[in-house]
Nucleic acid binder design. Structure first.
Length: 456
RNA sequence: GCGCCUCUAGCUCAACUGGUCAGAGCAAGUGACUCUUAAUCACUAGGUUCAGGGUUCGAGUCCCUGGGGGCGUACCA
């Protein structure tokens, strides 16, 4: 309607009749003339005016008696502008569409963080940023789908309820099937099923869906979060890094219109162009002032951790120590989006090793402003090596690592059928939204998990 | 998981060292007002001060237990 009546002068009568509906978000009543600002579902706002002359005394009295902020109102009448120039509908009829029984919060004071997440329906009404976040999420996800489909990918859906956890190292949520009379896991990753799809000949597949991890929750971790994983046959981790950069850049443009993003800490990040690349072992070597290699023993690396104020956990292997040193000493120095390349083999059991560097696998992590945004791999297709790695993981589990992967015999059988060489990527959608908007993870999720309120 | 902080009206916040401290603004109700846009003015109603226990002549305030939330830290994406 605003588009249909641009630039009308104040105090104009058009003679056109329209019908509008929306939620009353402001009211101003002056005796025989009432104003209400109505907001529609698309966020557009229009002023309704009800005058004694236009609706009559009974209807106006009824209006003043019944209508409160928060009610949904239907108004039909003439398109006019007020004496102050506001585009309005001068009602000749109004009807209550839905009565709001609870008062709305004050629109001009910030809602407490708790009320924002507990009552998102209210947050969405009073806070434009909340509505904007819902829009940005959809547009970013739609852009990613477009980007991948354009590149020949097929979007598939794989099980959330799994009989065996796998595809990542994390503690799962456990649930129970009455029909099967057995324990089930909510998935921690879709990886092993997407790879089964590769075995089956679906050469480029992706999935955007929920993962569940029974671990800590803080400003960058939610127990359920949306992950994108995509796999491409006959690609390697370098190919996947390039595609990842492209789809993130395309998503940033689609969702925010810009490649320059401002994060929660006020830092500004330019996502345009090529991104930095560092080698994991090189960067750690520089940070500690001596050469760190995949050949170093676990004991030696544990000592190195201790030197730098990191307390090694009992189940840490050599590679884990290197990664911890990296996160502690190197990650905070990143100022641009950075791909970190070539990880220790013992922490990446599903990844292909580098033929030229023993103990190193073809994996990268993408860091944006100090947190992991995505991770990519040349996938391990060799069923014999894969079995050895999973058996080693199972041993880790026995050693007390609650996140270690079990041996998935069906997955190994699939690899024995033959998976083409492939690259794969996992990307946290919520984290991407955090990066694009500068908000905490619970603000990017429309209805984040909250503990129940105590009932009075 | 551990540590620190916090919880008062529908919402956002006051109430000094324990002593007329149950308060304000908005929202709501009643009334006034035919051009407001956080309308204005007058009046009214609204509370188990998160819950339970304790100390005290007296507790929103101090102590203990439990719950919700936040921040830090650990694990993790």
């Amino acid at each position: 309607m605003r588009a249909a009546y641009p630039g009308l002068e104040a105090d104009t009568s058009t003679g056109d009749r329209v019908a509008v509906a929306g939620r009353v978000i402001f009211q101003r009543n002056t005796g025989k003339l009432c104003f209400a600002t109505l907001r529609a579902g698309d966020g557009s706002e229009i002023q309704a005016m009800l005058s004694l002359a236009s609706v009559g005394e009974d209807s106006l009295e009824e209006y003043k008696r019944l209508v409160d902020i928060g009610d949904h109102l239907f108004v039909s009448g003439e398109v006019i502008t007020s004496k102050r120039g506001e585009l309005s509908v001068l009602a000749d009829e109004w009807r209550m569409a839905t009565k709001s029984l609870r008062p709305l919060p004050v629109a001009h004071k910030p809602l407490s963080e708790e009320t924002r997440v507990r009552q998102r329906y209210v947050d969405l009404i009073v806070r434009p940023e909340a509505r904007e976040m819902a829009r940005v999420r959809v547009e970013a996800e739609a852009s990613i789908r477009r980007s991948l489909i354009e590149r020949g990918y097929l979007e598939i859906e794989t099980p959330v309820l799994q009989t065996q956890q796998g595809g990542a190292t994390a503690r799962p949520f456990v649930t129970r099937s009455h029909a099967f009379d057995m324990e089930l896991f909510l998935r921690i990753a879709p990886e092993l099923f997407l790879k089964r799809a590769l075995v089956g000949g679906l050469d480029r597949v992706f999935e955007i869906n929920r993962n569940f991890r029974n671990e800590g929750a803080d400003s960058t971790h939610s127990p359920e979060y949306v992950a994108l994983e995509f796999y491409q046959a006959y690609a390697d981790y370098r190919d996947m890094a390039r595609i990842t950069r492209e789809i993130i850049q395309e998503a940033a443009l689609a969702a925010t219109g810009s490649l320059v993003v401002t994060h929660a800490d006020g830092s500004v990040h330019d996502l345009s162009g090529e991104w930095d690349e560092v080698d994991l072992y090189d960067s750690v070597s520089r940070a500690v002032g001596r050469e760190v290699t995949p050949a170093m023993s676990e004991d030696e690396l544990r000592g190195l951790c201790a030197e730098h104020g990191i307390e090694p956990q009992p189940h840490w292997l050599a590679g884990k120590c290197v990664e911890e040193l990296f996160e502690e000493l190197v990650v905070p120095t990143f100022t641009r989006p950075t791909f970190v390349l070539d990880y220790p083999e013992d922490t990446s059991p599903l990844t292909r090793h580098r033929p030229d560097r023993p103990g190193v696998v073809e994996k990268w992590d993408l860091y944006v402003n100090g947190y992991e945004q995505a991770t990519g791999y040349s996938e391990l297709a060799d069923p014999v090596i894969q079995r050895e790695r999973l058996v080693a993981q199972a041993a880790q589990g026995a050693r007390g690592d609650l996140e270690a992967m079990p041996v998935d015999e069906d997955f190994l059988r699939a690899l024995e059928i033959g998976m083409p060489p492939a690259g794969g990527v996992g990307l946290g959608i919520d984290r991407l939204l955090m990066s694009l908007t500068g908000l905490g993870i619970r603000e990017t999720i429309l209805f984040p998990l909250v503990k129940p309120e105590a009932r009075a």
